[in-house]
């Protein structure tokens, strides 16, 4: 089955459940899952298709969230414009950071991105006068367009899923293009890719930047939806959670990651009493996936396809 048709089916399911679901708790949970999906789709491009790990993606989500919220609050710029500016700015920062770090071999890259995520968190915690530090940032305005405000969970649900699925479509098209095939060549054998005239480092920087821009867009939307952000939502555990979602979903499978993102972002909300145990569960999921299911849900998925 063509993955675009599959995407259309998913869009229909999402729309129908958006109309019929009535619990605001469920709707907001699914809306947040859609925002997470934006991040994991971006991370999947990087981790699944190019084979470059990032353990600092929550830092980039934080960058997008804080920049767009601050632009909107301090300079009273239109929220849409501020999300846009923030995404551009953080992509720029991503490119500047990615240029030197993507020269590193994979295990060093993991450490470097982990460090970058920590630095962003430390800076946010430290600049209390601007970001509010550990207390967080409040009074972030709502998103609205032509007098239509995204003020209830259902409206935002549709908006978030529309954005997430459009970005998913963009990513699917991207991976089917010449560019996407080059990325897969880099993943399977860098030296061979280089020999075929692919500028490996440049491609890695481009895909890293793209993935950062996804993350920061999701961060911006998150800030305007929740209306409150604090550095604790963007810690290292969140970064690792994104990696878990991509790994469990199957690196390089957009739909596998879609399902794992929905499941893994809903489960902790349902079993919120077991909050302490989630990092352990995440750890076990990673180890388990690498030991027995390196392809994650992708395997299950291709089986259904047939």
């Amino acid at each position: 089955m063509d993955s675009r048709i599959f995407l259309a089916i998913i869009a229909v399911i999402v729309a129908v459940s958006g109309i019929f679901l009535n619990s605001p708790f469920l709707l907001s949970m699914l809306a947040l899952a859609a925002l997470t999906l934006i991040v994991t789709t971006g991370l999947n491009l990087l981790l699944g298709f190019t084979g470059q790990i990032s353990l600092g993606h929550a830092g980039f989500v934080a960058l997008g969230a804080y920049m767009s919220a601050l632009l909107a609050i301090k300079f009273s710029i239109n929220p849409w414009l501020s999300i846009f500016i923030a995404t551009i700015l953080s992509s720029l920062i991503g490119a500047i950071i990615g240029y030197p770090t993507l020269k590193l071999k994979s295990h060093y890259l993991a450490m470097a991105t982990l460090a970058i995520g920590e630095v962003i968190n430390i800076l946010i915690m430290g600049t209390v006068s601007i970001t509010g530090g550990p207390q967080g940032l409040t009074a972030i305005p709502m998103l609205s367009i032509f007098g239509f405000t995204f003020d209830d969970d259902r409206k935002f649900y549709f908006f978030a899923w529309f954005t997430a699925l459009s970005l998913l479509l963009v990513s699917i098209n991207l991976t089917k293009s010449r560019f996407g095939r080059a990325l897969q060549a880099i993943k399977s054998k860098e030296i061979a890719a280089e020999a075929f005239g692919i500028n490996v480092h440049m491609y890695k920087v481009i895909i890293f930047t793209l993935s950062v821009s996804y993350a920061s867009l999701a961060g911006g939307l998150f800030a305007f939806y929740i209306g409150f952000i604090s550095p604790f939502s963007f810690g290292i555990l969140n970064s690792i959670e994104y990696v878990v979602m991509v790994v469990i979903g199957g690196m390089g499978s957009f739909f596998g990651v879609l399902f794992s993102t929905i499941i893994l972002s809903i489960l902790p909300n349902i079993f919120s009493g077991l909050k302490e145990f989630w990092p352990i569960a995440d750890g076990f999921l990673l180890v388990f996936a690498m030991m027995f299911l390196p392809d994650g849900l992708k395997k299950l998925f291709s089986w259904i396809k047939q």
Partner: peptide, 27 residues
């Protein structure tokens, strides 16, 4: 016993082990 012993999967695995150790001590 990793099924696929590429660098990437070993990194992911060690991250997972670190999470388990850290989480277990915390809990």
């Amino acid at each position: 016993n990793a099924k696929n012993s590429s660098d990437l999967s070993l990194i992911i695995m060690t991250v997972g082990i670190a999470m388990i150790l850290r989480g277990s001590v915390g809990v």
